[in-house]
């Protein structure tokens, strides 16, 4: 018996790769079967169709469900609306996030930096729903923003902004502007942290070298700092972009009655029971993300990695 155990132990010692594989099998199968397997099974439904009479899934290969996304005006509008909002939110987050990250990386003492880290992470430790509902109250007609505009006698300005077609709505809490504000707030940490990490790795001597070679501070920013921060901006934008593409709670709480991809998936697989169309909708963010990352790569966003 002892001999047998010793033999096994010897075998493992000599065949380290086999032992390695044995240890890795459980986590790998978790990733492979539970994670990717279920996702692929679900997504594969986009190549099936729903029988309109029986409400059952017809398991024969068809591209009709995918065509349905583009042929139906309502469905296609959902795609455009979602991608448009995701791009705007990403742009807004980068615009707000960059200066904060830059200040943190280059101008703060270690102590102040810790304060910033906590300030940025703190909201992430509270419930997402609570934060979204708080914003609902802030943006509501009876909320603080309306009150503030009222005090400044600028209610007419707010009304004018809200009456702009496409981005406006009956009140801030039921409008695209409102959604943009809430999304930007919610995803901001995911933009700041990667940009900060990339700026932190730019040594000050590079900035000095650029000044030394005759570049003004402005030129140094555009020619040295920004290109080197680009991988961080790209990484951050991947977060904000993909998270916005898939979210359905913010459009549900803050949005108008117009649907976004997340809501479409939710209703099609839930109440409507149309799993194939839900799967087709889910496929869109994935494909958009693949194109997004490819374009970012082509534009050189990852060159300085």
């Amino acid at each position: 018996m002892i001999n047998f155990i010793v033999n096994i132990s010897d075998y493992f010692y000599r065949n380290k790769n086999f032992l390695f594989l044995l240890f890795l099998l459980p986590p790998l199968s978790w990733l492979g079967i539970i994670y990717l397997g279920s996702l692929l099974t679900f997504l594969s439904h986009s190549f099936f169709s729903l029988d309109g009479f029986t409400g059952k899934i017809n398991y024969t290969f068809t591209l009709n469900t995918i065509f349905e996304l583009f042929n139906s005006r309502a469905n296609f509008d959902i795609l455009i609306r979602t991608v448009g909002l995701a791009l705007t939110v990403t742009f807004g987050s980068a615009l707000i996030g960059f200066p904060i990250a830059y200040y943190m990386a280059k101008f703060t003492s270690p102590k102040v930096k810790i304060f910033f880290y906590i300030a940025i992470m703190l909201p992430l430790w509270s419930s997402y729903l609570v934060r979204v509902y708080s914003w609902k109250l802030i943006l509501a007609k009876e909320g603080i923003i309306n009150w503030f505009f009222g005090k400044l006698h600028l209610t007419w300005l707010l009304d004018k902004i809200l009456s702009i077609p496409y981005i406006g709505g009956p009140s801030l809490s039921i409008s695209y502007i409102g959604m943009f504000l809430v999304f930007t707030y919610i995803w901001l940490p995911f933009m700041i942290l990667p940009i900060h990490a990339s700026l932190e790795r730019v040594p000050n001597s590079l900035i000095n070298a650029s000044l030394d070679l005759g570049a003004s501070k402005r030129q140094t920013f555009y020619k040295v700092i920004l290109p080197l921060a680009l991988p961080g901006i790209a990484a951050g934008s991947i977060f904000t972009f993909s998270l916005t593409l898939g979210d359905y709670i913010i459009p549900y709480i803050i949005g108008t009655s117009k649907f976004f991809i997340g809501q479409a998936v939710y209703t099609h697989q839930g109440t409507a029971g149309n799993i194939p169309l839900a799967a087709a909708f889910s496929l869109v963010p994935i494909i958009v993300m693949i194109f997004y990352i490819k374009t970012a790569k082509k534009l050189g966003a990852f060159d300085a990695l």
Binding site: N208, A209, D212, V224, D303
Partner: peptide
């Protein structure tokens, strides 16, 4: 006078070459 307006150049200890 700021560094970019001084007619001198520096070779840095870590070379400070632009990696991109």
């Amino acid at each position: 006078v700021p560094p970019y307006k001084r007619d001198l150049n520096t070779v840095f200890q870590d070379y400070a070459l632009f990696p991109h």
